[in-house]
Structure formats: C-alpha cells, structure tokens
Design a protein around this nucleic acid. Structure first.
Length: 592
RNA sequence: GGGCGCGUAGCCUAGCCAGGAUAGGGCGACAGCCUCCUAAGCUGUAGACCGGGGGUUCAAAUCCCUCCGCGCCCGCCA
C-alpha cells in the first residue's frame, strides 16, 4: 500500500484497480478473517453476520460487537476477548491495504477504511463511468418480474403507481446486478370487471367518449355500468367469452386494448417499460387452464362440491377451501393465475411478483398449489395500500387520484419553480426540466417509503418539491455537471488530468468517496430484501455528501494540482449520482 | 371472530429479520450564510418516556407474551 502513491502524478483513469477493491468485498474479507479468528478461539464457525455498517459515524466505518457474543461461551470479559481478537487481526490489517486501522473502544472493534480504498473507489468511478458497478454480482440467470398488472378497467391510480415504481426500480437493480430481467404485466382480460364494461356498452346510454384519454374513457363506462349492474347478464357474458364466443371476445379485446393504450402511455411517461403484456385469456386459449385443472383434479386435496372443483388447503393453515372451477365449468382468477405462473416459471430461474397487500392470501394459496404441483414458486413483494385521507380508493366507485392527474400537477409545480429560477430559459428546456423534476419527485416519493408501510396520500406533501427528494439528488448531479462543463470550457479535462490522490484528504472528500463506495452494498441489500427504498435513502445521502464537498472544497478556483484532483472527484461523484438516479428511474438532469 | 402488516418528536420517515456505544433524516417552527464553481444549497436551535404493560438478557426501538389503535384479507370477485 505504501507504493500506491509512489508515482505522485498519474491519471486516476489509468489506475490499476485491485481485485476486491469494493465495499462488499472489503466487508466479506473482514468477515471471513474474523470468522477464522473466532474459529481458532472457540472452535465454532460463525453463522450470522458480525459486521455492521457505521457510516456515517465518528467511531469508524465498520464495526463488530462479536466480543459481547463470545463472552458467555468463553466465560471471559468482553473487553478481554476484544483485546485478543484485536491482537489476532492486527497482523492481517497491517498488510491489508483497504483498512487503515482498528480502534478498540471497550469491547467494540471499529475498522477504518484507508485512503487507498477511497482512491480505488474514485478510480473505479472514473473508469466505469455511467456503468459504475454494473454487473457487480456477475451472471445471475433470468428473472421475470411481474408488476403493475392493474385491471384494464380504467387508468392507473396512485396505488398502482406505488406498485409500478417499486417493480420498475427493483427490475433496474436486478438488471444492474447482472440478472437477465424480463418485466411482465399480467392483463386481466377474463375478469368480471371487463365483462361489466362490455355489458355496459350493450346499453344504449353508455358510450366510450373519444375525446378522452382511452383508459379514462373506459373508467367512465365502468363506473356507470356498475351503477345499473345486472349480475346475471354479466355472468352470461363471462360464460360466453370463456366458452369461445368470438364476437363477444373481440369486444372484450377492443375494450382491453383501449385501456392498455392509455395505461402504457402513462407508464411510459413514468419512465417505465414493460417487456411483455401477458393476457389472461391466452392462458385459456392455449389450453393451459384445462391442463392445470386436470392436474389439480389428481391431487389428494382435491374434491368436488356442488359441481365445483375445490382444494382443501387446511393442512397449510388456509381454512377456506380454494375453488378452481365453478359448477358451470368456468375458471376463476386463481386458476388462471396458477396456469400463468407455471408458464412463467418454466421460462426463468426466478420469478418475482409485486402485489398489493390485498393479494397476500391469494398469493400464498397460489404458492401452495404450485408447490403441490411441483412447480417453481414466485417470490412475492407485498406493498401496503396507498389511501386517500377520506379512505380507500375504488375504480368502480370513481374514487381515485389517477397517475396522470398526479403527474400533471407535479410537473406543473416543477414548471413554476423553473420559471422562478430561469425566466429566460428556452421553452423546450423549461418543459423538459419540469418533466424530469416532476416525474422524478413522484417516483422518489413512492419508492422512498418501505413497502410495508401504509401511505396516506395528501396533495400538499406530494407537491412539496423543497423537501429532500428527487430534486435534491438531481440538483447535486446538475451542480457536478455545471462544474465539469465550466472546467472543460477552461480547458481542464477531468478524466485525463494528472491527479495526486494525496490532495484528496479533506474530511468531506473522504466522506464522499466512502459514500460512493457503498453503492454495491446498498444494492445488494435491496436485492436481498426485495426492497428498493434503501437505494432511495442512499441517493439522498450521496447527494448530501456531494453538497458538503461542494460547499467546502472549491474546485475551479483551487490551486493547480489540487484543482485537478478535485475535478476528478467531481467527475467520479457525478458518475455515481448518475447511476443512482438512473436506477431510480429519475432523469439525471444536467441543468436545473 | 381469525390471519397478515403497521404504530418512532406537531406531521412524514430510517433503523427491527442478524439485540449493543449519544435512536438517524426530512417537513413545519425559530436563528444565521450568496463581492465565491447553480441558495432546488449550507449551518445552528428547539422538538422522541421508539403505542401501553409484562418477560428474556450484562444490554431491548430491535427478540417473546399480552393489550390498545390503524390498514389489508377471510367471495363459485379479480
């Protein structure tokens, strides 16, 4: 490590990055070393994680409280154990370049990352650019992520938005880590909702308004049809559609396509791309539903009651029997979903479903049935409901706030802010910044909260762009871009300038580089827990670290030498900010 | 009634699965900082018996039990 700075002037871009020079690797190395030491002392292998991230903390970067845990089995004082572990590991640390030192405070052992580690991180951020840490888990196989899957009976509302944003962010993280990701939207075109819309259109007073966005027009028909509902007639439509009535099915198709047109337009504006829309009806058409019903009939848990095929799942803690075929021979949502999952499961290594909490029971029923059939089971990401202050949303009753309305309002609010700051900017520029800020703010607010928290939507909070959210992170990125732009106008090249890493020794510079290094560890946690909110929080912390650097270290006005070093740090930080924004599906604006 | 989830300052939230060092943030409030690379920024102050009670432990926001409050579910709906 001493040799690392021997040639004082070099470009960080040409720095040879050492294997293992990333936060995840450093932690893994330390954990293994500690486990070895504990094995020597106790004769037992550690199963659990023994390292904690401290960042940010005055104590150090990584710590362990292993000495407490061993106190009982070894019948010794924690401090004594910590002392002996410290003694054992210090030899290793002295020749390991990425840990500068260990502090022992009482029984706590705290590790401090070295400056060499920081420089390796920076060098990597410069070299890998906007692909920083891409593929950090290596080839991981194919994963199908199903999200959104809203019924095509109206526009996406803010509850669906939560689903879409969680699903899309997870998809981006999986892809970044090294998975081959396919996103799917399961289209419910065989359900009662769509039959209701089709039934509504048979009534002369109900028409699709063609001056409305198509998904909103469908919702209007759906809401009004529900007011005058004739259940028997809707049942008849469902029977005929499943029975293969081509004419009726083409009406279903027409309605569903209209709704999907509107929905996909909304998703596109949210920066979300669905790889494939899989129609429920295709599971029936291709015979998959009949096939799965035949297999289910063979199960020990299967029985017929009143002509309906049911499964007794009580041995799995599910009291009510699950109905899979009605007396009249038609299938149910669960049946078709099982067929869909069998089809999906055979096309990937992992499948992940993002579902609202109302689907918890059905999801566990489906998992049980798939297990009984010996098929792959999905991993389920459940998120709790988004409600309005006055209560739950309902498309059927027309009680909802649509994604379109929310985006319009947020973009318009962002537009006001742009106008305030840059009255002379071109129209196109104002418009695109407002769009990036407004949509980004919406996405951030949806993903920043842990999925298992209920959310009560309120306009005042949603439209507040001043709080720490997407605009804050975008702003840091834009600031970095602004410095880089000015630098290149002055003839400085952030990538190829000679840099002396020893100039980057200020506290806030070190903090920033360490924060940049945490990305893979954060993404790893998101993947492990299937919760993307950790990334949102990390983005905010990274932006905070950059803003502090910006505040205390002047770049362009710094003396030559220091200037180049800081410029490379701006470039590196900008790259990491870019990656984080990109993973969050938020526009990395260069000016705002 | 049963199952699952949630309950952290006036409001929103991280930490809980893998228990440890002064419980992190944000909004709002109050007080400061633009002759200096974007003030959508930075700094400081006030504000928390981590829903209540019990238990386990040297140590509990975190684990266990119980009660209370909120949400979702318990359809031959999707």
């Amino acid at each position: 490590m001493r040799g690392l700075f021997s040639s004082s002037l070099t470009t960080l871009l040409n720095w040879k990055i050492q294997d293992g020079a990333v936060y995840l690797e450093v932690k893994r190395t330390l954990a293994e070393k500690l486990a070895d030491i504990v094995y020597v002392i106790t004769g037992e292998r550690l199963e659990e994680t023994i390292l904690r991230d401290l960042s940010p903390s005055e104590y150090g970067d990584i710590s362990t409280t292993i000495a407490f845990k061993l106190a009982k089995t070894l019948k010794k004082k924690p401090i004594e154990i910590a002392e002996s572990i410290e003694k054992e590991i210090s030899d290793f640390v002295s020749c390991y370049p990425y840990i500068e030192r260990i502090d022992r405070i009482g029984p706590y052992l705290n590790f401090h990352l070295s400056h060499a580690y920081c420089i390796e991180i920076l060098s990597r951020a410069l070299k890998e650019g906007c692909e920083y840490r891409k593929g950090f888990l290596g080839e991981r196989g194919k994963v199908i992520i199903e999200h959104t899957s809203a019924n095509p009976d109206g526009p996406l509302h803010i509850g669906h938005v939560r689903n879409s944003v969680i699903g899309d962010t997870l998809s981006r993280i999986f892809r970044w880590a090294g998975f081959d990701v396919e996103t799917q939207y399961y289209v419910n075109d065989m359900g009662r909702q769509i039959a209701t819309v089709v039934w509504g259109l048979t009534r002369s007073e109900l028409k699709i308004e063609n001056n409305m966005k198509p998904d909103h027009a469908i919702a209007k028909v759906y809401i009004e049809a529900n007011r005058a509902l004739n259940k028997e007639e809707v049942d008849e439509i469902m029977r005929r559609v499943e029975g293969g009535d081509r004419e009726l099915f083409s009406k279903v198709r027409y309605v569903v396509d209209m709704a999907l047109d509107g929905i996909s337009e909304t998703l596109e504006r949210m920066n979300i791309k669905i790889d494939s829309y899989v129609r429920e009806s295709s599971c029936i058409e291709c015979g998959a539903v009949d096939e799965v019903l035949k297999r289910i009939e063979q199960l020990d848990q299967a029985f017929i009651e009143d002509g309906a095929l049911m499964l007794n799942l009580s041995e799995f803690g599910i009291e009510k029997p699950l109905v899979l075929r009605r007396g009249d021979g038609t299938s149910l949502y669960a049946t078709r979903d099982i067929a869909y999952h069998i089809w999906k499961g055979r096309r990937c290594d992992r499948m992940i479903d993002v579902l609202g909490s109302d689907h918890k029971l059905i999801a566990s029923q489906i998992r049980v049935v798939l297990t009984l059939l010996g098929e792959k089971i999905p991993e389920v990401v459940v998120f709790e409901f988004v409600t309005l202050p006055e209560g739950s949303m309902s498309t059927r009753e027309g009680k909802y706030i649509s994604a379109d309305e929310l985006m319009d309002k947020m973009v318009s609010r962002a537009r006001d802010e742009v106008e305030k700051r840059h009255p002379d900017m071109s129209e196109d520029m104002k418009k695109s910044i407002a769009e990036g800020v407004g949509i980004g703010a919406m996405r951030y607010d949806m993903v920043k909260i842990s999925p298992d928290k209920n959310m009560v939507f309120n306009w005042e909070d949603a439209l507040d762009l001043e709080k720490l959210g997407a605009p804050f992170i975008q702003y840091s990125h834009a600031r970095a871009c602004s410095i880089l732009k000015k630098a290149s106008e002055c003839g400085y090249d952030a990538l190829h300038c000679d840099t002396n890493p020893s100039y980057l020794k200020e506290e806030w510079e070190i903090t920033l580089m360490k924060k940049m290094g945490e990305l893979d560890s954060v993404l790893d946690r998101c993947l492990w827990e299937l919760k993307p909110h950790h990334l949102a929080i990390y983005g905010r912390e990274l932006a905070e670290a950059f803003n502090l650097f910006y505040r205390f270290s002047s770049v362009l006005k710094a003396p030559a030498g220091i200037r180049e070093s800081r410029l490379s740090l701006v470039q590196g930080a900008k790259n990491v900010l870019y990656v984080v924004l990109d993973l969050l599906g938020i526009e990395p604006l260069e000016k705002m």
